[in-house]
Design a protein around this nucleic acid. Structure first.
Lengths: 342, 342
DNA sequence: CCCAATCATGGTAGCGCTACCATTTGTCTG
DNA sequence: CAGACAAATGGTAGCGCTACCATGATTGGG
């Protein structure tokens, strides 16, 4: 006469309740939910009705334990507030919202060690796929990715040696293209201003340097960087530093759009004419670049699409059809605007 | 002579492996990891050594299943890219990084239905706590929250009737304060410009209206809104609309800082003097408000702190000491800058 | 010095689900 | 029409962990 209900579970319906109600075996309920094609039309209807009536929702934890595979995408990004990564995450999120997969986000704070720690934690759940920003994993992080036993997509950049799959673009080329544009517009003393010099920023700087050296115009005093996190106000300060160091500066390639905006505001404040006295190029092409006065030339990157495409690649791999193109270069676009129209 | 290793698990060490190695029972290993105080010094050391040597990491899914409680915080926000919510999430994330709790983010896209759906999904995991943005849940979403069986924190706003706990500030008061500041500065034809008029924006608008009515200056033609998502470029367009509708406009309270920035840029473009001809006030006080030229007066909100404090409240409740203050008002600060210094 | 109360540890029995392996039925081939 | 084979369903045995309930060892008060 004891209650058969468990002492622990909150009393919510389980698969056995559904099975009883529908008059079938538990396993058939499980199949009806996961592989509808393998259950006859009739039973499926009956089962779905029972599910509905009881308000049954499968327990993802039990599911993960039994199948040794959690329906989770692990996503590792270096920052949650940086608009660039927020857009990537949004793309990932939107692409996954109609799938059974959940998302678990990890914030590495631009630290390789933190990334390792998070991979360890994420791995313990046997995720369905891992999406990680960047290609500069520590050796031990790379080993964790290789042994994760699930599809791995490195995003934001392309490089020669993917762990599994890769989607992004060349930051080196982006930096070079931006700089070449300034050179073509006639600017000569072109500075580089960058904050939070993560590996991607370093490669943009390298692209800048390559372009300047090719033009015979490179000078280390033109480069102003800091490891401090990027912000609009920092952009303003760095520009003042740059100008103090090199008063003849006539152009700047900014590591990102926040910096570029800070530079523009300082130009306003100091009555420096843009684009006549100084040309400005940003990176990422946030919405505000087209609105500012003057509007700012920037390198448009396809962040949202990197998110959606990375999910598509991972889902294909999970389904057993890994894309033949393991490295996808989405490129970028230089968007010319008033800030370099001299 | 058969391999005792399971057919499924990838062969990673389990608690039983650790127990065998340390020469203790499995349950003792479990305790040593979760309640160190209840295991003798000696055994604990032995066990931790075994854990280390084997590289054992507990399986969170098995743990959740056995204890009917997942070590997960469910976080529901209306947008991932809106800097305001990104800051809240960052605060949550940072406060949880030293705890065993993971984070699962849900993006409601400002939709009540989507929020319900996500609460349903999240609930199936028996999360340790739920943090949701806003206080305007649908009746059925509210029921889901009440029956979640875990601490619930509503964030970003305060209101009279919390599901469980609440932390934020009054958007009505924020809107009123901003508007009163413009009035005190001598502006009279003060417009309201807002995009994505979610419930919080509506209350800021109500605060604006209350201040204007108290001054006997309210006119519906001063209000320009749209349900379209907010952006800097939209701010510019809405300001042009507002000006076309009411050419004598001499001030604007903007629903958020992006809009305010768009307004400022349009003023530059149209050679409208700020603050002489037009006063501008934003909302949230993003970093760029202090850098722009002229710098923009804004209502500073404590987003990051809302995130960290919400976690502290939830953790306290989980530990069995729910805070006596179930409603925490973090307030806001009006930051006066050049854009209203007439 | 005995018995209760504590403390430290362990055994057992699930948590809710699915992998694996039947079993049953229907369908096709020669 | 037998035999082979596929399709549909079910039973059993865990997945790796912890709640619950012993058990034995230690303490301490009367």
């Amino acid at each position: 006469m004891t209650k058969p209900r468990s002492r622990r579970g909150g009393g919510r319906p389980t698969i056995a309740d559904v099975a009883r109600k529908a008059g079938v075996g538990a396993i058939t309920v499980s199949r009806a939910l996961r592989e509808p094609g393998r259950v006859s039309e009739d039973l499926r209807r009956q089962i779905l009705a029972a599910v509905d009536e009881l308000g049954y929702v499968p327990d993802p934890n039990a599911r993960a334990l039994a199948s040794a595979r959690a329906e989770v995408f692990g996503v590792l990004v270096p920052s949650l507030t940086n608009n660039v990564f927020a857009e990537v995450v949004r793309g990932i999120y939107d692409s996954l919202s109609d799938s059974p997969f959940r998302i678990q986000i990890g914030n590495t704070h631009y630290s390789g060690l933190e990334e390792e720690r998070l991979l360890q934690v994420f791995g313990s759940q046997r995720p369905a796929a891992l999406i990680v920003a960047g290609i500069d994993q520590t050796p031990s992080a790379r080993r964790l990715l290789e042994n994760a036993g699930c599809p791995v997509v490195q995003v934001m950049e392309t490089g020669p040696d993917p762990v599994d799959m890769m989607i992004g673009f060349s930051h080196f080329d982006g930096g070079r293209t931006a700089t070449e544009h300034l050179l073509q517009a006639g600017y000569r003393k072109i500075g580089f201003i960058g904050a939070r010099m993560d590996p991607r920023s370093q490669r943009r700087l390298a692209g800048y340097r390559a372009a300047m050296e090719a033009a015979g115009l490179f000078d280390p005093r033109l480069v102003t960087t800091t490891p401090v996190p990027s912000s609009v106000s920092l952009g303003r300060e760095l520009f003042r530093d740059a100008l103090a160091k090199m008063p003849t500066l006539d152009g700047v390639f900014c590591n990102n759009d926040d910096i570029a905006l800070g530079v523009l505001f300082e130009c306003h404040r100091a009555s420096i004419d843009v684009p006549k006295q100084i040309g400005i190029v940003g990176f990422n092409d946030l919405d505000m670049m087209q609105v500012s006065f003057p509007s700012i030339t920037s390198v448009r990157t396809h962040r949202y699409e990197i998110g959606t495409r990375s999910v598509a690649m991972a889902l294909a791999a999970i389904a057993g059809n890994p894309p033949e193109q393991r490295i996808v270069d989405l490129g970028f676009e230089l968007v010319r605007r008033e800030s370099t129209a001299r």
